[in-house]
Amino acid sequence: MNIAKKIKILLQEAELYHSQGLLNEAMEKYNNAKELIQSNEQLKTNQNLINGISKKILALKEDINKIEKAPKKPEISGKMQDLIKKMVSFSPDKNEDLKALDGAIALAKFGQIKRAISEFNELIKTDSLRIVAAKNMLRCHMALSSMDEAVAQYEQWTSDQRFSTIQLDKLRVFLENILKKEGVEKKLPKREPPKDSIDQDQVEGPDVEEDADIIDINSMGITIYRGPNKGQVVEFKVKFQLGNKVSLLIPIRDKDLIDVFKVGDIINDIQYYSAAALYRGSGTVTSVKEIKIGPLRGDYCVDIKILLK
């Protein structure tokens, strides 16, 4: 096949991938076409052709940018929020309280924080859900980055008779811990135990347990702990996530970075970025592998098992 034809096919392919929203695939084809042109003495000077491709690449980059900048969890209509609740409570055997809890947690996960807060506030009325609802409510305030709100909320609960002293203690420890994670050392007020009455807290029903769910991680900041870049903080994009295992992709041109990771390494102080918040934690390197097939051939995939604090 002559080179002009090859280029034409590459450009057609790129165009189609672009129209299908397969933006990285389109970019690769444009780049392949550009390389072919550059390697050919005749075509190298064809300014029209080169300009044409550059324009296409620019438009493509714009689209990629738009997608990266789009809001991750926008506020949606009340009707849609209802649908989210309905979707996750689709189950015949759970009781209505638990379904309502699942619904509220799902709203929070979908970024519908304000609505979630108001639902948790309702669920606090139910004895068995009080603690789990209250914890989630505090988390929601933190997700809206209103630390003060979270603290004010807790303080308000200290004079709310629905909360027992034991429940309040649990919440206090919980909130102090998340504040610490955010770098705030703060002692929260305790409720003074009532002077004469018998402690009602002796009789307490079981609380609903939370399932520790792992969040979606978009990227992570790792302080390089080996090699020439030691001490530098590098942000890695997460390419793939399966539960608590994430895969980072490191291009072969960053060989220095690839060499940092060895299977079995325990990495302390990783910053995990999700759409809603920043978490700190550690992780264990579980695999470092060269990619053997596909467009990313030659690059490296580093798997890390994450541990959030």
Binding site: M87, V88, K109, D216, F240, Q241, L242
Partner: peptide, 21 residues
């Protein structure tokens, strides 16, 4: 009830929620 999940890799936990039940 028919649903689709978001396919982009970064939405893994959303996909899990949609799969519920």
């Amino acid at each position: 009830q028919v649903y689709t999940v978001p396919g982009q890799v970064q939405y893994s936990s959303t996909r899990k929620l949609v799969l519920k039940g």
